[in-house]
Design a protein around this nucleic acid. Sequence first.
DNA 1: GGCTCATGCCAACTATTATTGGCATGAGCC
DNA 2: GGCTCATGCCAATAATAGTTGGCATGAGCC
Lengths: 113, 113
Amino acid sequence: MGDLSGDRLVEVLATLASPHRLRVLAALTGGRAYVSQLARDLGISRALLQVHLKKLERAGLVTAHLELSGDGKALKYYEVTPFSLHLTPDVVAAAAATLSTAGDGDAPPKGTS
Amino acid sequence: MGDLSGDRLVEVLATLASPHRLRVLAALTGGRAYVSQLARDLGISRALLQVHLKKLERAGLVTAHLELSGDGKALKYYEVTPFSLHLTPDVVAAAAATLSTAGDGDAPPKGTS
DNA sequence: GGCTCATGCCAACTATTATTGGCATGAGCC
DNA sequence: GGCTCATGCCAATAATAGTTGGCATGAGCC
């Protein structure tokens, strides 16, 4: 995960740039947990937590999997995906070169499609 | 710049999480430039560029200084501030622990005020 | 003086994101 | 059956961030 495409970098950074998500990540770093549990733990609503978890998941920073508790309840456990991102001006410059976002008139040919 | 406070981390990440700013940073990594020049270079309006430059500057990712051109014009040159940020779950967790953002009921005592 | 180029800034609008509350479902437990 | 607990999702409303256009200033150049 040394360097990713500009678009992906933006996604990951945008995902990490949030106090709530940072806390969620921190909580999960201390051990996995299921949604309701985590919500109580962090003192936020489940609806809110779920949105943030989804964003974290989409960015690939956490993963989820269902698990049945002893009494048959379906619990959705989340855990952190190990990652290592080294940001430096050069890395950023390299990533920027692969940005696909419109805005400056040059839309790089996308090899993946 | 190994690890910064949660608040600062969020600020830096939020600042980097933008295609425009990534491009600005990339452009500056290739060499310093003054505002109007850079705007033409990137194909965006000065007003827009200035907003982004300000944000980058506030986050400490770039620095600016006035300089007089040969014909007396005051040009504001910007250049990238070298930085190195290594992001990992642990770093994030540590940063999250220092977050001051309200939201979960605990507002850490702020020494500065 | 009138033209160009550079900076700075604001007011207004649009687009995105964040957050809340409520509602529906499925499954044990009393 | 009625209660609790867990998930999932949506519609509506804040709250922010992004963008545009225009206007004002100061300084060379013709």
